[in-house]
């Protein structure tokens, strides 16, 4: 899986609600399309996304074929304190993309 892109604020204070933006390159093949010979192109999508902070799940998404290619997901978190994000994307083959990003928490 390709390296995802994640955008966090430069710094955050404990208790602050921050926006997290994520993007990963993926064809997100719906299983509805056909190739030149008329054969169905098998479904191949990222079906799950999970965001953990300091080991605890803060946000997740179950993804279906209606999601656009190169899925972009933006969401929020109330900063509990210092810690590191761990984002995981999983596709239909079970392939995983994992990205770890430390959040710069200032008092």
């Amino acid at each position: 899986m390709q390296k995802p892109r994640v955008k966090l604020p430069d710094s955050a204070k404990p208790g602050e609600i921050i926006e997290i933006k994520t993007l990963i390159s993926h064809v997100m093949e719906t299983g509805q399309r056909r190739d030149q010979d008329g054969k169905v192109i098998p479904r191949m999508i990222i079906n799950s996304f999970t965001a953990k902070f300091a080991g605890k799940e803060v946000f997740a998404a179950e993804i279906h074929p209606g999601m656009s290619a190169n899925p972009y997901i933006a969401f929020y978190m109330r900063v509990p304190g210092p810690g590191e994000f761990e984002f995981t994307w999983v596709d239909d083959n079970g392939d995983k993309g994992v990205e770890k990003v430390k959040l710069n928490v200032v008092a």
Partner: peptide
């Protein structure tokens, strides 16, 4: 197929909001 996405929030989310593309 009707499914697009299901967002799952937690109290730690702080805000029940999300953006994406369908």
């Amino acid at each position: 197929q009707p499914g697009v996405v299901t967002f799952k929030f937690t109290p730690e989310s702080g805000k029940a909001a999300a953006s994406s593309r369908m």
